[in-house]
Amino acid sequence: MDTEIALRVDGADHRLTVDTRTTLLDALRERLGNTSPKKGCDHGQCGACTILLDGRRANSCLALAVAHDGADIVTAAGLAADGQLHPMQRSFIEHDAFQCGYCTPGQIVSAVAMVEEAATGWPSAVTYRHPDGTDGTDTGPVDLAANPDEIRERMSGNLCRCAAYANMIPAIQEVARS
């Protein structure tokens, strides 16, 4: 069942006709040639396909393109502006925060979104470590740099089979600090 949709991807507008079964991931990769979001599991379990969808990180493999007509999408490729790497991309390189690199675009998009979420005071399961819940009611910014457990929890939707997690934490801490 073909439907015409519009997508803004990394700042460029596109019109395309998609079958209703097409996910955003497949539309990006197969139709628009943007292969920075990766197809890992294709079932929302690994996070390799993570994009910013209207400003929020999302698994593009579970989002039907037809349901996101008009969406503003940012992929890992679009994080780099004017030929300059995003600070998170630079930090991943400097900290050697990957091995094979397949999960890396998803990790980086996810980390960029996470820093923003923590700054706006979004809680995580770790924010509620105390049973009375009082710390979770504090709606102020969450200090990621001082709480690596917050980073681990908030990044748990991105798997890395090379297990490069140990270097991702300081890479993200450095960006969160600045």
Partner: peptide, 22 residues
């Protein structure tokens, strides 16, 4: 978060942020 912390905690213990955003 203030009135029903158990509700916020339950949600945050499920899935990942990418999934919870959708």
């Amino acid at each position: 978060r203030r009135r029903y912390p158990v509700v916020a905690q339950a949600v945050l213990n499920g899935a990942s942020t990418q999934l919870r955003n959708l």
